[in-house]
């Protein structure tokens, strides 16, 4: 049953590569307005889960809905930040141009971005502190700056739900803090943010919701209630001791 009060609802989702399932029978209900981490070991299917929700991969079973409707009908509600390593940063384009790509979805086919889209993109660049680099060729940016440009591109989509695939990978500490502050602002504005995350230490500090994933869903819920040794051990297979802020 699709429940429109959930921002994201995943039912019985199974995804396979070459008939080898990488996600088994996932059920996931994400309420609106949470900042959620997806954690799990390498190969747990974290990126795959996001890609399946966004229709980039076809599941072999199960369904996904965004505010009670299939993703195809809710594209404009959703922004996506892929892994930084998934694109060629030598592509001949500038920081501003990459951010403008975020407006292509709202524009639809054929229509070109106008001054309105350009203005929004410049504002997004300013928000992530990258306005001074707007004309810089993207290969000339540092890893942290590239990630900020990607974040700006998601912001310009002006969505209700943000999916981010490892936004803290290969960025410096300043950028990490800048990014998490923006994500917390998004949550304050009532948006839902889903982040594939690697650093277990920072989960209680950054996030209020968490999903443990290892091919199957181990647990999902508020960090305060479920981020504990028991679930960490179930997910990672070894006895994990981390400091959890209770």
């Amino acid at each position: 049953m699709q429940n429109p009060t959930y921002a994201i609802q995943v039912d019985d989702l199974t995804v396979a590569y070459n008939y080898k399932p990488v996600l088994w029978d996932i059920d996931l209900h994400v309420p609106e307005g949470v900042l959620m981490a997806i954690v799990g070991p390498n190969g747990a299917g974290k990126s795959t889960l996001i890609k399946a929700i966004l229709g980039i991969l076809d599941p072999i079973a199960g369904s996904v809905s965004i505010y009670g409707k299939p993703y195809e009908k809710q594209r404009k509600q959703v922004a996506y930040v892929p892994q930084k390593g998934s694109v060629d940063w030598d592509f001949p384009t500038t920081a501003l141009d990459v951010v403008m790509m975020g407006t292509y979805g709202q524009l639809g086919w054929i229509k070109r971005p106008s001054t309105k889209e350009k203005k929004a993109s410049l504002e997004a660049l300013e928000k992530v502190g990258m306005l001074a680099f707007k004309s810089r060729q993207i290969s000339q940016l540092s890893g942290g700056q590239q990630q900020r440009v990607f974040l700006a591109r998601a912001l310009v989509q002006n969505a209700s739900i943000y999916f981010m695939d490892e936004p803290f990978q290969g960025v410096d500490a300043t950028t990490e803090i800048a990014i998490i502050n923006i994500l917390k602002e998004l949550r304050k504005a009532g948006k839902t943010v889903v982040v594939v995350h690697h650093d277990l230490q920072t989960v209680p500090e950054y996030f209020d919701w968490v999903t443990f994933l290892n091919v199957k869903k181990i647990a999902t819920g508020p960090v305060k209630e479920i981020f504990n040794d028991d679930n960490l051990t179930k997910t990672y297979g070894i006895n994990y001791k981390v400091a959890v802020n209770k």
Binding site: I56, V78, Y80, S86, F91, G105, L107, I110, R112, P113
Partner: peptide
């Protein structure tokens, strides 16, 4: 001229392009 932006985004970032419905 018609599909310049579609060509650009799908060449640069397959993931985003697909998520945007292009």
């Amino acid at each position: 001229l018609l599909f310049y932006k579609e060509l650009k985004v799908s060449t640069f970032d397959i993931g985003l392009s697909s998520a945007l419905g292009i």
